[in-house]
Design a protein around this nucleic acid. Sequence first.
RNA 1: GGGGAGAUACCUAAGUGGCCAACAGGGGCAGACUGUAAAUCUGCUGGCGUACGCCUUCGUAGGUUCGAAUCCUGCUCUCCCCA
Length: 376
Amino acid sequence: MKFEICAKDNKTKARAGEITTDHGKIQTPIFMPVGTAGSVKGVNQRDLIEDVGAQIILGNTYHLYLRPGMETMNLAGGLHKFINWDRPILTDSGGYQVFSLAENRKLKDEGAHFSSHIDGSKHLFTPENIVDIQRIIGADIIMAFDECTPYPCEYNYAKKSMDLTHKWLKRGLKHFDASEPLYGHSQTFFPIVQGSVFKDLRIESAETIVSHNREGYAIGGLSVGEPEQEMYDMIEVVNEILPQDKPRYLMGVGTPVNILEGIARGIDMFDCVMPTRNGRNGMLFTSEGIINIKNVKWKNDFSPIDENGSSFVDLQFSKAYLRHLIIAKEILGAQIASLHNLSFYLWLVTESRKRIIDGSFLSWKNSMIEKLSFRL
RNA sequence: GGGGAGAUACCUAAGUGGCCAACAGGGGCAGACUGUAAAUCUGCUGGCGUACGCCUUCGUAGGUUCGAAUCCUGCUCUCCCCA
């Protein structure tokens, strides 16, 4: 993997860059649609490329390991072939599931014992077998196995959790460096910064992971319920330490405003379920503000979904029609809303990149934030 | 013509003397959702009031009772079976 910075904003920490993988280039800052179980929910691969303009998508180690399972993944020749996607893929390690499925797991030094949310079967994830699984999935970028520290969180727990993530990182990297990709394209391994909302822990964590000298770094354990300002503060603290010449990935973030604020603080990569999940539940993000399409005020509004939108659905269908589809629980409603939101998210980062390059990022960002804080 | 069952809020439907402004679904309205156990979850849904509360409701008109959606009588309507 290669990372090149094309332009730096001179009023903020924002940068425009380009990541090169064996599956093609990614222009940063980038938003990566989440395709947990081998699908970006409600959006097919052709539309992801041709309409949304997705340059890279996510898969999830925990979910793919349980279903369809690694035998099928291996026989398919990896996730790219399995889902017929030849652009880059990043896989999350399952660290987030250690957090979100907490009642089903027990954390030990060796790894995470857990029972499947599907059939209750018992499994053990270790930093080593998480690498093996991600080798079989074959993602271009694979993530360290971490504990996504919950919030709120006592300092002592946050420290213990961070230390565990660091120990797991060391083992994971050792195993990664001693193993080979399976399908002829190269894979890179991103460590993850933890440390909850404690500045000294975040600094310690960032310094620790940087010492392993990898091709990119991620910031985890944010957007888990802490006030947004704390998230921004932690990004600033960590980005002081993460090297300029490596991509920085802020995991699980976020709202359009979060993304703009992240870009302004030097983040290059984002992922979030928000555009798809909230879309399925009737929330639309547009350049004029946020819409709850289920609200009765849209019942007879036959204007386009988003007249400035970049997806074909935006002009093709009316708000009233989309409202009807979502309320009637028609699958098409979820599909249209997901297409719209993902297109908006990709537009947001593409436009940011343009503005960073032409020098108008800061003022544009501020005017966008004002609009995006508004409920239509 | 004879016999039987029933009528509860926007809909379906529980309740058969006080704990009933009335279970539960649906529908409606609003909210939540951040490395997806989510096409999910939460709240409200007779009127007025922020609230304690007050007022009006269980087909309809009367009655019994301290007290009725619940018991009794008349009436209206609906459905089923037999002729």
